[in-house]
Simulated assay, not measured.
Amino acid sequence: MGTPAIPPQLLRANQWMANGEYENAASAYKELARRAEELFPQRAPFLYIEAGRAAILNGQTKPELPICGADSPSSLHKAETIVCRQSVNI
Rank of each mutant, 00 (worst) to 15 (best):
E31H: 10
R35M: 09
S75I: 13
Q60V: 12
G2S: 14
L11G: 10
N19T: 12
R34S: 07
E38P: 06
Q9H: 09
T81Y: 00
H77P: 06
V88D: 04
I6A: 13
V83E: 01
I6D: 15
P45M: 01
Y48E: 02
A26D: 02
Y48V: 02
S87E: 08
P8M: 12
L39W: 06
N19I: 08
N24F: 08
S75G: 03
P45I: 00
L76H: 04
I49H: 03
A33F: 00
E31D: 15
L65T: 04
L11Q: 15
A36G: 07
C84I: 02
L39T: 11
E50H: 07
Q9P: 05
H77S: 07
F46G: 08
H77E: 05
V83Y: 00
V83W: 00
Y29E: 06
A18G: 05
K62T: 12
S27M: 14
V83H: 01
T81N: 05
E38M: 10
L65K: 07
A44D: 02
A79N: 03
K62C: 10
Q60T: 06
P45W: 00
Q42K: 04
L32A: 05
A36F: 01
F46S: 07
C68G: 03
C68Y: 07
T3D: 15
R34H: 08
S87D: 07
E64H: 09
L47D: 00
G2W: 11
E80H: 00
Q9D: 14
N19W: 15
R53M: 11
Y48W: 13
S87G: 01
S87N: 11
Q42E: 09
P73T: 00
E38H: 13
I49Q: 08
P7A: 10
T3S: 13
V83M: 03
